[in-house]
């Protein structure tokens, strides 16, 4: 009972915050850190990413302009048919689209797959330094699903977007594209040649774990487990291979509240907290055990509460270690 009233009170504050003529970004951030109510998430995410303007009077026109702009990019990009495309990039996207969240109905529908294909390709050719890198496909899925939820009453994971009017699908696709672009702006060096962003993050993670949990770090070293062997994926897919999409969506509420550099900075602390969480188990395992355990972690039953615990541990680590990083040679 009490919990419900807290929740409805929080929702009230959100509605109040979002209906201001000029949204206070600081207030929205503060609220969003603790999680966004699902029905307000599409708008809140777009505001937090700086896609939807804070001033209410320019929102409709901005959205219309951005959606048009995306539409013209799509038309120009695909004007010469498939022959006009960059073949290596297109080939990679074509084989990855059908294996994006395989088995989840939403991602098996024709309409969803064509949207995903266009989003990825248009982004890739506009970012030639990285192009399309596997794992970026995963990052589109929370956006698409959350934005689609604004137009339907049922579970987006089993809904065929082909049943929606074309204008609505176009809007979901365009919004997903722009928000993905904003997210990737903060982590571009994860995906350029030699992936220096990931290399750096994994190195820092190793240094940090050495300080946060020295016995664990020593154990991993003695078993010859290299952080790169498991944490590469944690950085490349932002833990989306380790936790559910529902968990990811909740996690992104907080990341977006932290600012777009959270996807590289704050994420590092989340990864540390995530590893240290299994410390007792890992310390009992040999090389094989550790690697096998870390690639199929028991997070299937994780709910918002587990994610929130993880986020607060990461917050703590961040406040303790972030400024200390310069002391141990973090570049």
């Amino acid at each position: 009972m009490r919990e419900r009233s807290i929740r409805s009170n929080r929702k009230h504050k959100f509605i109040e915050c979002l209906s201001n003529r000029d949204i206070s970004i600081n207030e929205l951030r503060k609220l969003a850190w603790a999680g966004i109510p699902p029905e307000l998430r599409p708008m809140a995410w777009q505001v937090l990413l700086g896609y939807l303007p804070l001033a209410s009077e320019s929102r409709t026109s901005t959205l219309a302009r951005k959606r048009d702009e995306y539409q013209s990019m799509v038309e120009a990009t695909f004007a010469r048919g498939k022959e006009g495309l960059d073949q290596p990039i297109w080939h990679q996207i074509e084989i990855d689209v059908p294996r994006t969240r395989p088995g989840v109905q939403l991602w098996m529908f024709e309409t969803t797959q064509r949207c995903l294909e266009r989003i990825l390709y248009v982004w890739a050719i506009r970012h030639p330094a990285s192009g399309y890198v596997q794992g970026i496909n995963d990052l589109v899925t929370p956006f698409f699903q959350v934005f689609m939820s604004a137009y339907i009453d049922t579970d987006p994971e089993s809904f065929d977007p082909g049943l929606l009017p074309k204008s609505v699908v176009d809007a979901i696709e365009a919004d997903s594209f722009w928000c993905l672009s904003r997210l990737l702006d903060g982590i571009q060096d994860n995906y350029i040649f030699a992936q220096p962003g990931i290399q750096r993050s994994v190195r820092r993670m190793q240094e940090l774990v050495g300080r946060i949990d020295a016995p664990l770090a020593a154990h991993l070293e003695s078993e010859h487990v290299e952080f790169m062997q498991f944490a590469f994926r944690w950085m490349n897919c932002l833990l989306m291979r380790e936790i559910s999409v529902q968990n990811t969506i909740r996690m992104w509420d907080t990341y977006l509240a932290e600012g777009t550099d959270a996807f590289s900075q704050f994420h590092l602390y989340v990864c540390c907290a995530f590893l240290v969480k299994w410390s007792d188990k890992l310390k009992q395992m040999d090389f094989q055990g550790v690697i096998m355990f870390l690639q199929s972690l028991p997070t299937q039953d994780w709910g918002d509460h587990d994610i929130e615990m993880l986020l607060s541990e990461a917050f703590l680590l961040n406040s303790i270690w972030h400024n200390a990083q310069s002391h141990f040679g973090g570049k």
Binding site: I95, R99, P102, Q134, Q229, F230, N236, Q288, I291
Partner: peptide, 27 residues
């Protein structure tokens, strides 16, 4: 299965094998 996601980084599996010489654990 036709439902594998694209591999990121690398996945790890092990298998115990008998050879004429001696038993083997393949990583």
């Amino acid at each position: 299965s036709t439902q594998y996601k694209a591999t990121i980084g690398a996945d790890f599996l092990t298998k115990e094998v008998e050879t004429e010489e001696r038993p083997v654990t393949m990583q």
